[in-house]
């Protein structure tokens, strides 16, 4: 009799045990953290990293690849997310990319609920998304968390929850597309485009925990 793999559930995230290799990775990251473990920020960072590694373990192979985690100051995470996201080529052609390379920064301001304590940068592709300024305007595109950041205390969210939120934002499931409200959209042109192409939204309905289909695009 073969042992059946237990069903993946996000609700089990907080209670999951880390695999030995992730446990070793966690210890290395925590070791490099110079903060006093008795301070709230000194405790929060290992907890965030633990949850992120649990999400990585829970996710199907290839859904997310953690490139690097630095907990020496602010918590900085570089990761690749296998997700369908709207992108634009240098010649202006709009296409659906299969993967996003992201940088997440979480500072100790999150303990105080400071609005600037969470930042998400998109290294690739060049997003054509109403929550991201047009490519080239900034050195690296930042992704606005949009209405989610107003209705939810994003600073109080954990990194793992943030990754799930980013997954839905990039898929155009959670997105601001009202071009009449230019202060709330970072790229009005993208907002107008996606408003006119609402039938294509969301780009994908695949849940985060569903198996990943490899069909072109960048490899994880």
């Amino acid at each position: 009799m073969t042992k059946q793999e237990p069903r993946r559930r996000l609700s089990s995230l907080r209670s999951m045990e880390l695999s030995p290799d992730r446990q070793v990775a966690l210890e290395g990251i925590v070791q490099a953290c110079p903060d006093d473990r008795n301070t709230p920020w000194g405790r929060r960072k290992p907890a965030e990293v633990t949850n992120l590694l649990r999400l990585d373990q829970l996710a199907p192979p290839g859904r997310m690849v953690i490139r690097a985690i630095d907990a020496s100051g602010a918590l900085r995470i570089a990761l690749a997310l296998r997700v369908k996201c709207p992108a634009v080529r240098p010649d202006g052609q709009i296409y659906v990319a299969d993967q996003a390379e992201l940088g997440i920064i979480l500072t100790d301001g999150c303990l105080r609920g400071a609005k600037d304590s969470v930042a998400v940068l998109v290294f690739a592709p060049a997003l054509f998304h109403s929550n991201a300024a047009p490519p080239g305007q900034l050195p690296i595109q930042g992704l606005c968390l949009g209405d989610a950041s107003v209705s939810m205390p994003v600073a109080a969210l954990g990194c793992a929850e943030l990754v799930l939120l980013l997954y839905s934002i990039l898929q155009l499931q959670t997105v601001t597309i009202d071009p009449e409200d230019p202060l709330r959209v970072a790229n009005p042109e993208a907002a107008r485009y996606w408003l006119a192409h609402r039938d294509q939204m969301p780009l994908d309905r695949t849940p985060f925990l569903a198996p990943v289909e490899y069909s072109g695009g960048a490899t994880p």
Partner: peptide
């Protein structure tokens, strides 16, 4: 912000 460090390990 991602490649700028206030504290360098």
């Amino acid at each position: 912000a991602f490649h700028t460090l206030d504290a360098v390990p």
